[in-house]
């Protein structure tokens, strides 16, 4: 029997922390405090944090901050980072110019 996740469980007030202002996602300039608040507001999944704050959706595609975000979210939820599902990986894994991506070898049939 799989456990369903109750998204209403968090009711305590949000407590600011001293380093809330520290940047975590360098590309989108998202702070630790913003991530913590998002969790408090119900974004329990890494995917939701990304969608809500654009964390890891910038130029580097989360290559720098993914683990850091995971650690912060896990701590807020009181679980181990390994229990959190990673966001889906999407191609292209390196940025490609539109002109290049549209230029397929062998041309268009």
């Amino acid at each position: 029997m799989t456990q369903i996740t109750d998204r209403s469980m968090r009711t305590a007030a949000f407590k600011p922390e001293a380093d809330d202002d520290m940047l975590i996602c360098r590309c989108e300039e998202i702070t630790k405090g913003e991530i913590r608040r998002a969790v408090y507001e119900g974004m329990y999944e890494i995917t939701e944090i990304r969608r809500w704050l654009r964390v890891g959706m910038g130029l580097c595609q989360g290559q720098t901050c993914t683990k850091l975000v995971q650690r912060i979210v896990a701590k807020e939820l009181g679980v181990s980072p390994a229990q959190l599902e990673s966001a889906a990986a999407r191609g292209p894994v390196r940025p490609i110019e539109m002109a290049c991506m549209g230029n397929e070898k062998g041309g268009v049939c």
Partner: peptide, 22 residues
């Protein structure tokens, strides 16, 4: 040569120069 993606059926998409290929 950048591998930009790995797709079902062990298809690899690569980018080399100004071109992509499968």
């Amino acid at each position: 040569t950048v591998v930009t993606g790995l797709y079902p059926g062990n298809e690899v998409m690569i980018k080399k120069g100004g071109q992509v290929s499968h």
